[in-house]
Design a protein around this nucleic acid. Sequence first.
DNA 1: CATGTGAACTTGACAGTGTAAAGTAGTGCT
DNA 2: AGCACTACTTTACACTGTCAAGTTCACATG
Lengths: 203, 203
Amino acid sequence: MTENADKKKHHHGNLRAALVSAGIELLEEGGLEALTLRKCAARAGVSHAAPAHHFEGLQGLKHAIAEEGFRLFSAHLQRAIEAGPQSDRGRLNSICRGYLLFGLQHRGVLNVIFGGKGLAGLVASPSGKKEAHAYLLLRQVCAPFVPEGVDPQVVEAQVWSLIHGFTLLHLAGEFGPPAVPEDGGAFDQVMGLLDALPMPPKA
Amino acid sequence: MTENADKKKHHHGNLRAALVSAGIELLEEGGLEALTLRKCAARAGVSHAAPAHHFEGLQGLKHAIAEEGFRLFSAHLQRAIEAGPQSDRGRLNSICRGYLLFGLQHRGVLNVIFGGKGLAGLVASPSGKKEAHAYLLLRQVCAPFVPEGVDPQVVEAQVWSLIHGFTLLHLAGEFGPPAVPEDGGAFDQVMGLLDALPMPPKA
DNA sequence: CATGTGAACTTGACAGTGTAAAGTAGTGCT
DNA sequence: AGCACTACTTTACACTGTCAAGTTCACATG
C-alpha cells in the first residue's frame, strides 16, 4: 500500500501538499513577496517551524512549488492545445497563447517556476525529466516545423524564447497596459514571426 | 545653479548616487536577495534609515537602480553595436548578442530592470521616455527590417521578445550550463529566426 | 504490557529585514 | 541672532528565515 497517500501520519496528514497548496494560494493573491514560510504554515494550521521538516528552507518550498506549478502549467498548455484548431499552425499558436494566458493568470507561479533557478535543477536533473510534460508538448507541437537535418531543439528554443520573452515583457508592462481579453493586438502580430517556420536548413 | 549637482549638502554629499551605486554592487555580488536597504546604507557609510529620505522604501531604491541599470544596459548595447560589423544584419545580431552578454554579466541588474514592474513605470510614464536610450537603439537597428505599411513596433517587439526570452531562459539554465565564452552554440541558431526578417506585410 | 525510539510538530529564541516616529546637527535665509 | 528646513541618527516595532530544544504521538521491540 505504498500508493495510498491518505494515511494520516501524525496530526495533520499530508502536510507537505497542504503547504505547497497554501504557497500557491499566497502566490496568486499577493505575488512573489507574499510567499512566506510562516504564512504558509499559518494557512495550513501548523506552527511556523513545521515546514522545516518537509522542505529545506524557503528555497526548498519554492522548489516544490515550482514542481507543482509546472504540472499546472503543463496541464494548462495541453488544454489550450486541445481546445484550439487542430492543424500544425493552429497548435503552435495555441500553445503560445496558452503560455501567455497562464502568465497573465498565474503570474506569481510562473515567476517561481522560472525565477532563481527554480526549474533549472528540476529539468536538468536526470530524475526530473519525467516532470517535463510541457517540454514534450512543445516538442510535439514544434515537430512539424523542423526541417530535415536540423536539430529539433533549435526550433523549440526559437518558439520558446519568443513566447517566453513576449509573456514576460507583457507582464512587465512593456507593451502597454495588459490587454487581457484575448489580447488581440500585439500577440498575433508578434507571433507572426513564426510564420517563417520551417526555416530553410542553412544558406 | 540648479544644474550643478556637485554641491555637498550636509554630511555626505550626493548620498543618493552612492546608495544606488552600492545597490548595484550588492546586486552584482550576491544577486537579488543580497540587495538590502540596510546593507546599501552600511556600504555608503550612513545609518540604516538614511535611504528613506532619498527613496520611497525598498521599492523606490529598486526603481532608482532600474533607472541607472537601464543606462548601463543602453551603453552596453551601444558599445556592442559599434564594435560589431556595420551592416543591417550585423547590427541586429550585435544588439542581441549584447543583450545576452549583459544578462550573463549583470544578471542581478537585469532582474531589477525587468522584474516586478521595475521598468514599466519608468518607460511608460510620459517623463520617462528620455531614459529609453535602449529603445531608440532597438528602433534604429530594427528599422531596416520593417516592411512598408507595417508598424515598426511590431518588428521591435518580435526582436525584443526573442532575445529577452532567450536571455532569461539561458540565465535560468534551461539551455544547459551557461556556456559563457561567446556562446557559439544555441545563440546563433536561435537568432537564425531573425533571418526571416523582413516578413511580408500580410498574406 | 512497559519501554524506548523516532518522526511530526511546537515553542522559544536570534539575527536580519523594512518602516515609522522622534531626536539632532548642520545650512541657509531673514 | 534667530528660525525654519534638510539630512541624517536613534530608537522601536512587526515580520521574516532559521536554529535548538522540547513535546506528543505511532509503533516496534524487549
